[in-house]
Each structure stands twice: as structure tokens, then as C-alpha cells.
């Protein structure tokens, strides 16, 4: 059972539809106790960092998600769900979950922001969710990117005027800056691969 974190603003529906399409069992998670029956977390993308963090605090989900991560079960952060793993976001100066060292910064580019549309990923190392997708296009929509303290955390990068980290992997912890649930067949495969991490 995959738990999809519902922090009020995230686009829960599209992630849920993609999981339904793949025949995967999932439930929306709004309260800490709902994590008890969950084998993996997907933290979906849309929303602002500050609003999402205050909602997580209000509901007690912040501590529950941190405890879940300590248990070693798989976590996939999509866009905002990736960014919240880090220490703080320059978007509304919000402190985040601080699971990983590094910051969330506005993409330092001369190109237009938000970075909206289909862009390609370049794999930097073997990457459980993305192997075989070097050069494939995924759908992005964001202005902020993660800047990990340890560069080896990154497993893929993308360029929009400047290169940025588009996927990370560390043990059971996965994060993608793009939206697999909005990236057609390639995106659905990424979600299916994440689900297999749960069984592994």
C-alpha cells in the first residue's frame, strides 16, 4: 500500500489516477495514524513550500513522515516533495524536513521561470527509477531546485539555461524534480519502478 501525502494543495488526484492506472493500491494520507498501514510514501508536487510545511506541522505529519523515513521504507518526493527533504527553501524562507543536507534555491538561470514543459534528463550514475531513460523527456513545472550539500546524491540532471539536479537517490529515498504522473508513458514507468522498491 502506497500512502500519498495530502497536504491540502498538492495535486493528489493526478498521482492517484496514475497509480490506479498502474493497478497499484494507494491511500491518501492526511493524519499520522494513516501511515501505519503504508509501505511506501509518495509526496506529490504542487504547492508552495511554506504552506505545505505549516500544514504538515498542524496535522502532526511532519514528525510522522520523519519517523517513517527512519524506518527505511521507500519514499518518493515529486517536485515539492523532493524539495522538502532538504533543510530550507528560499521560496518564502521556509524551513523544511532537513532529512538531507542542502538548500532549495531559485534556479540560477537567465531563461524564463517557472521552468515549464518537457525537458530531458541526463543520468549521472545508475539510477533505480531512471535507468534506460537517459535523454528522455519529462514534464517539469517549477522555479526552485535542490542544491544538495553532497553532489553524489544527484543521479540525474537537467538544463534550463543552467544545469540543476532533476533526480536524487539515496537508499530508499527517491526524489524527482519533474512530474512522473504528468509525463506520459515514461512517467508511468518511473512510478511503477518506485512501486517495485516497495516489494524489494
Amino acid at each position: 500500500m502506497i500512502g500519498v501525502i495530502d497536504h491540502g494543495a498538492g495535486n493528489l488526484a493526478s498521482v492517484g489516477h496514475a497509480l490506479d492506472h498502474l493497478g497499484l493500491e494507494w491511500r491518501a494520507v492526511r493524519h499520522p495514524r494513516q501511515l501505519a498501514t503504508v509501505d511506501a510514501i509518495i509526496f506529490p508536487g504542487v504547492g508552495a513550500a511554506g504552506a505545505a510545511m505549516s500544514r504538515l506541522r498542524q496535522t502532526g505529519l511532519e514528525q510522522a513522515v520523519l519517523a517513517f523515513l527512519k524506518s527505511g521504507r521507500p519514499y518518493l518526493g515529486i517536485c515539492l516533495g523532493l524539495q522538502l527533504l532538504f533543510q530550507a527553501s528560499a521560496e518564502d524562507d521556509s524551513p523544511c524536513l532537513s532529512v538531507l543536507e542542502g538548500r532549495v534555491v531559485r534556479l540560477p538561470t537567465a531563461a524564463k521561470l517557472p521552468h515549464v514543459g518537457w525537458n530531458t534528463v541526463e543520468l549521472l550514475r545508475p539510477c533505480s527509477l531512471l535507468d534506460g531513460f537517459d535523454g528522455a523527456a519529462f514534464y517539469f513545472t517549477h522555479s526552485y531546485v535542490v542544491d544538495p550539500a553532497s553532489p553524489e546524491l544527484a543521479c540525474a540532471r537537467t538544463s534550463h539555461g543552467a544545469p540543476f539536479v532533476s533526480a536524487i537517490e539515496q537508499g530508499p529515498l527517491f526524489g524527482v524534480q519533474f512530474h512522473p504522473e504528468r509525463s506520459g508513458e515514461a512517467g508511468l514507468q518511473v512510478l511503477a519502478r518506485f512501486a517495485r522498491q516497495m516489494a524489494a
Partner: peptide, 26 residues
Amino acid sequence: FIPFTVGGGVASEADVRRLLRAGADK
């Protein structure tokens, strides 16, 4: 499983929320 935008008669924050929660991306 590609993004879609919905418009027309969006008048309030509640309208925005309803459309996003129904599955619109923008």
C-alpha cells in the same frame, strides 16, 4: 497522463482549489 489546464469562470480561490483537486494541473 499529460498536464492540462482548465479555465472559464474561475472567480475565487475556492474555484481554483476545486479544479486542482478534481485533477487539473493549472
